[in-house]
Amino acid sequence: MNIFRLAGDMTHLLSIIVLLLKIYATKSCSGISLKTQELYALVFLARYLDLFTDFISVYNTIMKVVFIASSLAIVWCMRLHPLVKRSYDKELDTFRHYFLIGGTFVLALVLNEKFTLQEILWAFSIYLEAVAILPQLVLLQRSGNVDNLTGQYVFFLGAYRAFYILNWIYRYLTEPRFTRWIACVSGIVQTGIYADFFYYYFISWKNNSKLKLPA
C-alpha cells in the first residue's frame, strides 16, 4: 500500500459518501444516472469475486464489502425507494449502456491476463469501470445545471483514478516486476474521459459560478 493508492481509495469512498449524502439529505436522485450506478454495481460484483477466496488484507476485504454494499444500496434506492425513485430523470438517462457492457465484455474475452473466468471478469470490470461514467456525463450535459453535490460526486470519482495512476507509476518505479498494463491503460482512458468535466469544474470553481456543461 502506498500513499497514492490510499488517497485514491479514500477519494473513491468520499465520492460514494457524497452521493449517499445527496440522496439521503435531499431524498432526491435528480441529476444522477441510474445506468451509471448499475454499471458500477456490476463493476464491483465482477471484480470482487475473489472476496471469499483470496484474502489480501482486512482493509481490502472491508473496502470491497463497502463498495459492493453501497453500490447495490444506491441502485436499490433509485429503483425502489418510493420517495427517491420519483425524482429519477428517466427521460434524460437514455444512454444505451448495454452496448458498454457488451463491448467491454468482448474486449475482456480478447484482452485478459489469463483466459479463466475470474481473470476475464476482472478485465471486464476494469474496462467497464473506465466507461461507466459516460451515462452520467451525458445526463449532466442534458440536464444543464448541475447541483453541487452531484458535481462533487463526479469530481471525486474522476480524481480517485488519477491517484491510482500515480500509484501505478510509484509501484512501477519501486517494485521490480510490477506491470499492470490492463489496469494502467484502462485507468488512463478512464481519467481522460473526465478531462472535459474537470475543465468545466475548474472554470466554475475559479469563477465561483454554477457548474454548466455545454450541451
Partner: peptide, 10 residues
C-alpha cells in the same frame, strides 16, 4: 498463485 499476480488493488 504468486502474490503479485493476485489483484491486490481495489
Amino acid at each position: 498463485s504468486e502474490p503479485s499476480e493476485k489483484h491486490d488493488e481495489l
